[in-house]
Each structure stands twice: as structure tokens, then as C-alpha cells.
Design a protein around this nucleic acid. Structure first.
Length: 395
RNA sequence: GCGUAAGUGGCGGAGUGGUCAAUCGCAGCAGACUGUAAAUUUGCCGGCUUCGGCCUUCGAAGGUUCGAAUCCUUCCUUACGCACCA
């Protein structure tokens, strides 16, 4: 790819909106290194594919020679962001923030060259501000800015509580931009308000306002927006097999979107795949390729190919998977107790239901349906529902 | 501070003295159908059970009653209105 193509891809692929696109393009064209701000919310430390789109953008910028600046919202995390949330967020303790952060960089390291990333905790500067400064910053905004904000308005209209504390959040995130002298900020389109507040404050502080690259949000497994709070995420820390299974369960309409947002597959290849689908190719095969591409990004090609094979063996050929949960039972222990102890089932009632529904089978050459809820544990492989496999040993 | 309304299962939201473990929708689980698709459809969806029942839940704590998610009291939480110029 030429430099120009890289810049086009940066500004177009998966991008919802660029604020001052022309300006930004000309800045990028000069080749002068720019400072790219990216805020990390330490509330939930798992990077899922939706969030990863932003990190891949950072990677593209890094490849173009720009300086990525991570801002860990350790201070703002304690306040709680209101963007994209339907209800007020709980305040996090210091300890929780620290804990959540521990794994974050490692996950980001799967995508970025972390050694080149500048890292800051926003408590570095936010903690030092007093009422005087906060008052000055707050003066850059009017109450109607906040009230007319969609998600605040919705909550107000619904009679939900909106804490004043939440209004401080954009001020702080905006000041982050001032503190690190950001040229560009990257974030999801749900962050628009917060990122714009950065521009406002930078102007107050005599800095050139940052340009903003806003990314589209992608759908999760159930078709709703991918979000940890919905539990519909594909996480970059998921095993290759999990990623594979999750991708395969996506509805067909999302295939091309996922190629676009969640893989690095070239535009030409995407066109080919799309043409194939339109010509009547089985979407399942496109999805297998998609799953392999996604797994490759985080686990490497070899492991992704193995996951593909395991998927085909287990679900298409109905073979018993190689790796599964292993549990061990005492002598004369009932099967329920073993499964309960290992959290395979959540309660005895849960177990009873599963048995009555005919979901529990012992795999023993063929499949033998288990109908007695009180059966004793015997060694072997059990299958509960479609995808829960358990290997049981007697200790 | 005063007044009014409200707080129900993971979420939304019914229920206003017994037939309520609590309608319904979403999410989830399981069966059928499949491509582990999606959509559809059927069942389940607090816990324990000798399958007769039993136990714990409707903001919290007390109380009334044979009996309470439903009535009363106090408290906590939230929304809305009032407040000053009059």
C-alpha cells in the first residue's frame, strides 16, 4: 500500500465520522508525527472486537509514524463515564481500577507496539486541580450543552437520575487532551461529546483543537451493540476455539461488516468474498474464513487453522473435541454433585431440567441419553446441550 | 424543608389482602429445524424435594391480619413540583 492508500484506509475503513477531515488529511500528508490520544476506561478491562477497532486504528497511525498516547482513565474511572450508558455508573474504588488495568496493556499489546506507546494516568494532572480550575473549565460549557445530549436527555425524560458528578466527566476527558497536547483523538462514536469537549478546552488553553476520528460501533453476538454489559462480546483474550464458535454463530448479514471492521483483509479480497456470496456461495464458508481471519489476528495463523479444524470436526462431523473441561469424581459420587462442584451446572434444579429436556448425553461410541437425575458418576465423556463437553475421571 | 408519585426476579415492566414463586417483553438455557447459522417453533427460566410438598424472595425494619408484593408505621433511595423576588 502506498502512503496515500494507508491514509485513505485510516480515514475511511470502519470510520463513522472524522471531524475536520480535510484538515486532518493535510496534516497527515505532511508526514510530521502527530500525537494521537486514546483514552482507556479501566471500568472493564476486557478488549472486545468492538473496542479493538479503535486500537487497530492506532496501529495504522503507529505504522504511519505517529505517536500514540494512552491515557488511562484511572481518575475518570473513579467518577464514571455517562456516555452510552442508560443508567448511572457506580463509582469504582482505586483498587478496582488498578486491578482492571493489569491485563489491559497486555491485550493491547496483541495489536500495538506497546514499547512505542506513551502512557499516562490522568490522575497525574486531574488530581492536582482545585475548585478554581474546575470552575474555569466548567465555564467553557453551558448547561444546555449537557441537557440536549441524547443520552442525558433520554434519562431525564424517563425520570432517571442524572448525577452532577457525571457532568464533570467530559470536562476531565477534555482536559486530558489539553494535558497531552493531542493532535488527534480516536474513539467510538459514542464518545463524540467527550471528544468534542477536548476541542473546546484546548481552544481555551490556546492549543489547536484536536481532530477526531470516530469509529462505528459493531453488533455483538445477539445483534445488539457489542458491549460488556450485554455479555455479547468476542474478546481478544478468548481462545481461538471460542472466537471461532462465536463468529460462526453470527447471523449472515453481519459477515461483510465483520470483515470490514474486525479483520485486516484487503478491500480486494472483501470484494471477492462479497461477490461470491451474491453468486450464491454458502455463507457458512465465508464465515469460516472470517472466523479464521479474526482468530489469526490474536492467536496466529496456525492456531486459527487448528481452531477451524476443531470446529469442523466437532460440529459438522460431530466428533468429540480434543480439549474439554475435565472433572474428577469421588467413588460413588452422584453425577450431579460432581457437575455442581465444578460449576458445570448451576444448581440441582438446573440439572434436573436439563435431564428432563433430554439435553444430557453420555458419549460412548454412540450417544446414550441420560434420564435418571440421580445416576452415579461413571468415567467417560458427557455432553450437555450442544456445546458443553465434560470429561469425567474417577479419582 | 414541604408536597406528590414511585422502589417488584439479570433488565424493562404487570400485579394493589388469599387462586402469587408472582402476567408479559428482552436477555439466557434446552428440544425441533439447520450451516452449532439467522429466522421460526416448542418447553424451561429462585432453591430443595422421598415429587406429596417444603423453604427463601417483591427497597429496609417493625406492625395489623387466619393470611401481605398488596394495608399501617418508621426509615432509606429516586423523580417531579413548590421555595426567593411577592
Amino acid at each position: 500500500m502506498t502512503e496515500k492508500q494507508k491514509i485513505d484506509e485510516l480515514l475511511e475503513r470502519g470510520v463513522a465520522e472524522v471531524i475536520h477531515a480535510d484538515l486532518l488529511r493535510s496534516k497527515l500528508n505532511t508526514g510530521k508525527p502527530l500525537r494521537v490520544k486514546f483514552g482507556i476506561d479501566p471500568t472493564s478491562p476486557h478488549i472486545h472486537l468492538g473496542r479493538a477497532t479503535a486500537i487497530w486504528k492506532l496501529r495504522e497511525l503507529q505504522d504511519l509514524g505517529h505517536q500514540v498516547v494512552f491515557i488511562v482513565g484511572d481518575f475518570t474511572g473513579v467518577i464514571g463515564d455517562t456516555s452510552d450508558k442508560e443508567s448511572e455508573r457506580p463509582m469504582l474504588t482505586r483498587e478496582a481500577v488498578e486491578q482492571n488495568l493489569a491485563t489491559y496493556f497486555e491485550q493491547a499489546g496483541k495489536i500495538l507496539d506497546m514499547s512505542k506507546v506513551e502512557k499516562h494516568y490522568n490522575s497525574e494532572w486531574l488530581e492536582k486541580l482545585g475548585y478554581r480550575e474546575i470552575g474555569e473549565h466548567a465555564d467553557a460549557f453551558s448547561l444546555s450543552d449537557f441537557i440536549s445530549r441524547e443520552n442525558i436527555k433520554r434519562r431525564l425524560d424517563a425520570g432517571k437520575r442524572v448525577s452532577l458528578r457525571e457532568l464533570l466527566y467530559p470536562l476531565m476527558q477534555g482536559y486530558d487532551s489539553v494535558a497531552v497536547k493531542a493532535d488527534i483523538e480516536i474513539g467510538g462514536s459514542d464518545q463524540k461529546f467527550n471528544m468534542l469537549s477536548g476541542r473546546k478546552l484546548q481552544e481555551r488553553f490556546g492549543q489547536a483543537p484536536q481532530d477526531i476520528i470516530m469509529l462505528d460501533l459493531i453488533e455483538g453476538l445477539d445483534g445488539r451493540k457489542m458491549s460488556s454489559s450485554f455479555g455479547n462480546t468476542i474478546n481478544v483474550t478468548d481462545t481461538a476455539n471460542d472466537m471461532f464458535g462465536k463468529v460462526m454463530s453470527l447471523r449472515d448479514e453481519l459477515i461483510m461488516k465483520y470483515f470490514m471492521y474486525a479483520t485486516r483483509v484487503s478491500a480486494e479480497r472483501m470484494k471477492e468474498i462479497e461477490a461470491g456470496l451474491n453468486a450464491g456461495a454458502n455463507p457458512r464458508d465465508a464465515k469460516l474464513d472470517l472466523a479464521e481471519e479474526i482468530a489469526t489476528l490474536y492467536h496466529g495463523r496456525d492456531e486459527a487453522v487448528r481452531a477451524r479444524e476443531a470446529f469442523i470436526a466437532t460440529f459438522q462431523k460431530k466428533e468429540i473435541p480434543d480439549d474439554m473441561v475435565e472433572v474428577s469424581a469421588e467413588k460413588d459420587e452422584s453425577l450431579v454433585d460432581v457437575l455442581l462442584r465444578n460449576e458445570v451446572v448451576t444448581s440441582k434444579t438446573d440439572w434436573r431440567r436439563l435431564v428432563e429436556e433430554g439435553a444430557v448425553k453420555k458419549l460412548d461410541g454412540g450417544e446414550e441419553k441420560i434420564e435418571d437425575t440421580k445416576i452415579l458418576a461413571t468415567p467417560g465423556v458427557y455432553k450437555i446441550g450442544k456445546r458443553r463437553f465434560v470429561k469425567l475421571n474417577i479419582s
